[in-house]
Design a protein around this nucleic acid. Structure first.
Lengths: 339, 339
DNA sequence: CTGCCCATTGACAGCGCTGTCTAACCCGGC
DNA sequence: GCCGGGTTAGACAGCGCTGTCAATGGGCAG
């Protein structure tokens, strides 16, 4: 019986037992050329016998790279990002990369800390949903690690950005509401700082403007308090002397609030279109019409791009905007209930 | 001007510029004792100036530990686990640990692979929602890395397990349905292999038995196909010659399917209680009564336990079962519509 | 003034691995 | 039989850091 080493076996243990040099073990484990079949089989046998696994820390120390992809998003608890991360994880694993996830909670300081942490862990690539803070430090912190932005970017980032055409998607949705006869259409935002919210608001305003419909200030709820996920704002809107007959919600979180407010007061006569799908949107009566903002598609596109860059592909930084089909389920087609 | 090194600065660079030894730099960076205030300030200044950050790979190589907590769950895309992971991440970060997340998709092979990967990355601790496969390999793979199981365990694991009292929670829910006058109460399961599902089924059967109500086979839908998240099963149930007047769904995924099936067919006269809360459960008409299976509470409890173990606390492995209050929202109190 | 002790600092090895460079080996052709 | 060329294997350094242990120096008791 071969004597087993005390702790976890190392290349030295394998080499000793197999009667070869550590370099040969390294070659076999890394599948590099220059090893005869006979030696390879011998070494693989010993590797199996001892249960040897490489120490990624040691490898990373030498190579300066860790076969890890870092993903930094607003919050893993957000269903949109949870879904995105999940797709990235599966694809990355298949490509031989493990995934590190971190949340920023939209805090620029946290974003920077997480990015710094990942950078010093020698991640092979980064996927980031950036905060709205200043990013002038980005290049210095991240260096030349391949990076892809998701959902949004910042001016002059010089990076790939995979997202959707917020403006067009929003415009299309509002046009649908106008087509159903609505003119008093309220806008529900999120954080006004978020460029995505801002672009969707632009789409809203553009559609209204093109239809010649004025937008009274009280219907433009650009920002919602983080503590109030929409319920309060919608309740307020409905209590106006001249309330809106339709709502365009710029994000799923606000939509959930809107649905709560509408359903709890039985006001299903108010039209609603949500930018971003959510669970049960199809089961409500009426079903909620949504602009489909699919995290899986964004993730799949972004991760391919990132893997290509990690693989050394020379790509011109691009802004990749995916389509956002309007999924009509009823709530966006509710006709205007006012003369 | 101090000349900056080419690549990322190392302890050598800092030591050279500060005119001290690398060991002193190491001491300052690690806040270990035995450095005078003057030296400390000097070194910290240089650290700042050069933008030095430790190389975790090198540190991990020496210390054999990586200040990382590994979290392995069914799927990060599952809202329950997404929420759980999110809480762990925040708490771990505050304690100086970064978090690695991985999904098993309930595949024992994947579970083992992920565990092996994390083990060789020298994680400081592990949190695992185990698959239902054999775990005889566990001790050999994981060694003495502190580990805490969440949501479920396996017999003789000898590990901490943080979950809920599935049997009692389910029994309580079914008693509520019985109290509302229902006798034809269907059970919606998930995977029959899952011990959580099985325990909840036991609670269901126990409540029925205690009330002297027989459970016809056709109402006991222990397992649902992964591809059918409940809609099909519930539709079938409602088309029975003698359909159930109430449903007890053992998990949120099945509940979503049940809600879809009920709302799309307008059958809100059927009572429903869900084991596990979900988004919009409160906004539906009627609101969905749930057994509150709170991921945040489980996560918080489990991570504290794990951090204590990592900190060297000597604890007797325990099964910690958290309470599952019944949140009455209406759907569980719908009276029986049959004579 | 001398010696001793403690506080502070440094020299050095080595964690496990891979890159570079050299050595050994086997083959066929002259 | 000897040499050249290609293939396979090994020796060795060093990635950046921390643990061990030794050295240095300043203050205070004797």
């Amino acid at each position: 019986m071969t004597e087993l080493p005390a702790g976890r076996p190392t290349v030295y243990d394998v080499a000793r037992v197999a009667g070869v040099s550590i370099k040969t073990v390294s070659r076999v484990v890394n599948q590099s050329a220059g090893v005869s079949d006979k030696t390879r089989q011998l070494v693989l046998g010993v590797v199996e016998e001892l249960g040897y696994v490489v120490n990624p820390a040691a490898r990373s120390l030498v190579t300066g790279s860790s076969s890890t992809i870092g993903v930094i998003v607003d919050s893993i608890a957000d269903p949109f990002f949870a879904s995105l991360v999940s797709v990235v994880e599966v694809r990355a694993l298949a490509a031989g990369f493990s995934t590190q996830v971190a949340s920023t909670w939209r805090d620029p300081q946290r974003e920077r800390d997480q990015l710094l942490r990942m950078t010093r862990e020698n991640v092979s690539g980064l996927m980031l949903a950036p905060t709205m803070g200043d990013h002038s430090w980005f290049a210095a912190t991240v260096g030349d690690v391949p990076a892809v932005l998701v959902d949004r970017g910042w001016p002059g980032s010089g990076l790939d950005m995979v997202g959707v055409n917020d403006r067009a998607g929003a415009k299309h949705a509002v046009e649908q509401l106008l087509k159903a006869g609505h003119t008093r259409i309220a806008f529900l935002g999120d954080d006004t700082e978020l460029t995505t919210t801002e672009h969707r608001r632009e789409g809203y305003l553009a559609a209204m403007d093109a239809a010649g419909v004025p937008v009274p200030e009280e219907l433009d709820r650009g920002s919602l308090a983080m503590t109030d996920p929409g319920v309060g704002a919608v309740t307020e809107l409905l209590e106006l002397p001249d309330p809106p007959t339709a709502l365009f919600s710029s994000n799923a979180r606000a939509s959930l609030g809107a649905v709560r407010a509408l359903h709890m007061t039985g006001r299903t006569d108010v039209a609603l279109i949500s930018f971003g799908d959510f669970e049960l949107a199809d089961a409500l009566q009426p079903g909620i019409t949504v602009v489909d903002h699919d995290p899986a598609l964004i993730a799949a596109t972004a991760v391919e791009r990132l893997l290509a860059r990690i693989g050394g592909a020379q790509l011109v930084p691009a802004e990749i905007l995916l389509p956002t089909p309007l999924v009509k389920r009823g709530s966006g087609e509710v006709p205007c209930n006012r003369s």
